[in-house]
């Protein structure tokens, strides 16, 4: 397995801020893996996402130290535009992810390609392909500003994917959507991951994190509190002190343990919980 993201001892403080947002963060992400970042509000998750795509240090002003490398490219020495071919970012508010230059969804999707000077024929082909992937073929001629939040978020994900990045960074990208819209986006992300795209996801839904993550990293007050597989992280006795919610299945398992059932492992996923309950009922 090769590392596609390598963050080394990275610290960052926004200009004029009273505190340092990220402190000596180090981790790496392997190619094709599903990497989740969890933590309380204000723990630096979004800042970290911005650092992965080069918005820090190229867009946000502040002091930084340490390094972020994406596929052996030093982010600080690169440009956001160059990085956009390797790593794409989707964040929370759908309507802030529109370019506001497009009269139609098709133009919106093509915006990034136009900036990179891609020829019109290629553009049309890629727009058609991404639209099919995101299930937005029927929206191509619509004005993006007249769509629902869920639809716009799919357009935003599409405009990111059209750059064909190897890594997708998702910063709570379903937080403002209704459950249905949220699942639609999520299904697409899971499929992309199965097709080989590395996913770095920030999310508050711990059941979901436990279900898909290969690795989970817990951030607290800008520091890495824990890093490991969902099983390791969520069953850690200290987990609740890090300011995160733990999956209900873990709580269920603890309850069963307290009630005198001896369990081999605490469950973090639905299938594990089902197995555990079966075992307990026997």
């Amino acid at each position: 397995m090769t590392e596609v993201i390598r963050v080394d001892d990275f610290s960052f403080r926004y200009r004029d801020a009273d505190r340092t947002t990220l402190k000596r963060v180090s981790f790496s992400v392997e190619q094709g893996s599903f990497f989740c970042i969890v933590g309380a509000n204000g723990s630096g998750k979004s800042t970290l996402c911005n650092a992965l795509v080069g918005l820090i240090p190229h867009y946000f002003v502040g002091k930084s130290r340490g390094s972020v490398r994406i596929e052996d490219r030093d982010v600080a020495a690169s440009t956001i535009a160059d990085l956009s071919r390797q790593v794409g970012l989707v964040f929370q508010n759908p309507f802030n992810q529109l370019s506001y230059t497009a009269g139609t969804v098709a133009e919106e999707l093509a915006f990034g390609l136009g900036n990179h000077g891609v020829s019109r024929e290629t553009m049309h082909a890629k727009v058609a392909r991404v639209a099919a992937l995101m299930h937005i073929e029927d929206l191509l001629d619509k004005n993006p500003l007249e769509l629902s939040g869920g639809q716009v978020q799919r357009v935003a994900l599409g405009s990111t994917l059209i750059m064909e990045p190897d890594i997708l960074v998702l910063d709570e990208c379903t937080a403002q959507l209704d459950p249905l819209g949220s699942e639609e986006i999520f299904d697409i992300v899971k499929r992309l991951n199965q097709e080989g795209i590395t996913v770095v996801m920030v999310d508050h839904d711990m059941e979901r994190v436990a279900r898909c993550a290969d690795q989970v990293m817990v951030l607290g007050a800008g520091r890495v509190r824990a890093l490991g597989t969902p099983e390791e992280v969520f069953t850690d006795p200290d987990a609740e002190k890090w300011g995160i919610d733990i999956p209900d299945y873990v709580k269920l398992g603890r309850g069963l343990e307290d009630a005198g059932f001896g369990l081999s492992d605490l469950p973090v996923r639905e299938d594990q919980a089902v197995g555990m309950i079966r075992e307990a009922l026997r």
Binding site: S11, R13, R15, R19, T20, K23, V61, G62, K63, R65, A221, G222
Partner: peptide
């Protein structure tokens, strides 16, 4: 801003 990178460390205890 570039000059006082060092004080990143100083406030670490403070942040705790």
């Amino acid at each position: 801003d570039l000059d006082d990178l060092d004080d990143l460390d100083e406030d670490e205890d403070e942040d705790e």
